[in-house]
């Protein structure tokens, strides 16, 4: 197993945001995590990539502990993160965004005396082609459309060449066509990387969930199964529909 999580819990001001008994991910597996709002999906990814500190529990990545490490150390271990809200460098060109992401030595002196190489240029070009960014290479990232920003951030993660990619709502705010393309891309990436995707869009989940889907509800793992199993599970239906009913009752 590439990633092993045991008894992970974190609370914010007394509220249990996450209380995960067990979670594991195989190498080169694409796992989708679904769940209603506030289920702790993003919090889970935040803990893996070092943004949030867990109260207790362990996360083993390739057998090494992740908890307690800094963001940089975790990134160096080979975990890359795409955030829910596209987070790119708006004041830099698309090309520079990609250049900064690319895997290389990242200390200050290497950066100061950095000379671009042909191999690196090819790699950036290849990733940009894959994500349809070649036509906007010298545009400011801040001027891109929402969908393009999403792709740019995915490209940033891809160029880091991580073993594990944590992708938070990649299809949010995208058109159907763009969503489909994103799905195809994730499937292709899963041949070389392990990926955890958080998503709400069930059509999109159906497209990419070739293996297991994990359902989180109120910080706990409700079930794990194939997309068909999850879709037809009464508890999953209840917790999605039940929420709506509860909201209706309060009205």
């Amino acid at each position: 197993m590439l990633l092993n999580v045991n008894n992970l819990s974190v609370s914010f001001g007394g509220v249990h945001a996450l209380n995960l008994d067990h979670f594991s991910l195989r190498d080169k597996e694409l796992r989708v995590i679904i769940g209603p709002n506030g289920a702790g999906k993003s919090t889970f990814l935040d803990i893996i990539c070092g943004k949030t500190k867990a109260d207790k529990g362990e996360i083993l990545f390739n057998g090494k502990a992740v908890t307690g490490k800094t963001e940089v150390a975790i990134a160096e271990m080979g975990i890359g993160r795409k955030f829910q809200k596209p987070s790119v460098f708006p004041g830099l060109t698309v090309h520079d965004n990609l250049l900064l992401a690319a895997k290389m030595k990242k200390d200050i002196f290497s950066s100061l005396f950095f000379k671009p190489t042909a191999a690196l240029a090819d790699r950036i070009h290849a990733v940009a082609t894959k994500l349809s960014l070649t036509t906007v290479m010298y545009k400011m990232a801040g001027d891109l459309s929402h969908g393009q920003k999403q792709w740019l951030e995915i490209a940033i993660v891809v160029l880091q060449d991580p073993t594990l990619m944590l992708i938070d709502e990649p299809a949010a705010g995208m058109s159907d066509e763009e969503t489909e393309k994103t799905g195809a891309l994730l499937l292709e990436l899963s041949k070389a990387h392990s990926i955890i995707v958080i998503e709400h869009d069930m059509k999109f989940v159906e497209q990419i969930a070739r293996e297991l889907v994990t359902v989180l509800v109120r910080g706990k793992r409700l079930m794990e199964g194939t997309f068909a199993e999850v879709k037809n599970d009464q508890r999953v239906i209840d917790c999605y529909l039940g929420r709506t009913n509860a909201q209706l009752e309060t009205l």
């Binding site: 990539c49 943004k51 800094t70 963001e71 940089v72 990134a75 160096e76 890359g80 993160r81 955030f83 987070s87 790119v88 460098f89 708006p90 004041g91 830099l92 900064l100 992401a101 990242k106 200390d107 940033i156 880091q160």
Partner: peptide
């Protein structure tokens, strides 16, 4: 400039801010 734009993004790209 990347630090100015998005400090968290650049540290997740393994730069020691």
């Amino acid at each position: 400039q990347a630090i100015r734009d998005s400090e968290s993004r650049i540290s997740y790209a393994a730069y020691k801010v």
